[in-house]
Write a protein that binds this DNA or RNA. Structure first.
Lengths: 96, 96, 96, 96
DNA sequence: GAACTTATGTCGGTGC
DNA sequence: GCACCGACATAAGTTC
């Protein structure tokens, strides 16, 4: 340890140190908020995985469940428009 | 078309219908549980994005924050091992 | 169904049909060009995977090789700046 | 600086140095092979991007082109099986 | 070793 | 006009 040092152990210091400490603290808070949120996110991701596992054990196919879920996210209108153009392209390529 | 119909409108039906309905219901519950969880997950992901935005507005670099956060997830021992090998590789390539 | 039909079976038709056919052909060419390029890209990706496999069989750690390769892509100046900020952040978090 | 040094400047040295140098050289070759391949891969990716751009300038929708291309990669049989189960699930959810 | 999930980088769209 | 923002595509990591 340095006796005087430019560290954070002084009770009374110069303003510059205060600024640095304040900044450090601010960054630390941002980081911790993010880490906490990531923790929550991971917990939910685990829950989702568990549900898929349970469904699989009941005979459902998770892969196809995912397709259904993805489809349900689309607005009916958007999907219809997309499908209309899609049909034109497929026809052009002899796919249908 | 069947005259009576093998659909879900009959008040009293055969057991097979009951089975189908039960199965449908089970799948629906799985799907809805997953969709709810995904909704929560997305909300948290949005929160994380907001924190990064706020940090950036305070002058912090989100890209480097991510590196720090990733690093903090590693066990000190693992990181040291990784860094040791990394140094060997860098030396071999004339990077240091 | 139209009597004469707006299809591609007529030997001699109207200009509109010609336009459609031309358009179809143009789209098809775009698609095929992309598919060919994607094929080449995949072949190279496979080659890369093979090199990593070979390196691993020689005792090298692919994960750390990737870090080195990523690092070598950075301009020396950029990397130094990044590392400088990184050190500040780590210090603020008591990581060093 | 060490007087004799464990570096690569000696013309004649011990076997251990030779081993290290040989190892360094091997790693370097792996890395360079990968970097070269990645360069080629990137060039092709750029070409693909250019084709999409050109197609867009001709009025085609790249997003939908991607869907078509993805679909063309599937084996007809696989897609049919998938679609069969998919229909069952969708029916259970009242999607169709 | 293959598939899926997450993370990162890029691109087009938008608002100031 | 640029810079932020969201979406998309790609690449990496992880799990089975």
């Amino acid at each position: 340890m340095s006796e005087i040092g430019h560290n954070s152990n002084e009770i009374l210091g110069d303003d510059e140190d205060d600024d640095i400490v304040a900044s450090d603290q601010q960054l630390r808070l941002f980081i911790e908020r993010i880490e906490n949120l990531e923790g929550e996110k991971k917990a939910i991701a685990d829950d989702i995985r568990d549900v898929y596992s349970e469904a699989r054990s009941q005979g459902y196919d998770p892969k196809i469940m995912r397709i259904v879920i993805r489809d349900r996210k689309l607005q009916p209108q958007d999907r219809q428009e997309r499908d209309a153009i899609l049909d034109v392209y497929k026809a052009a390529l002899g796919l249908i």
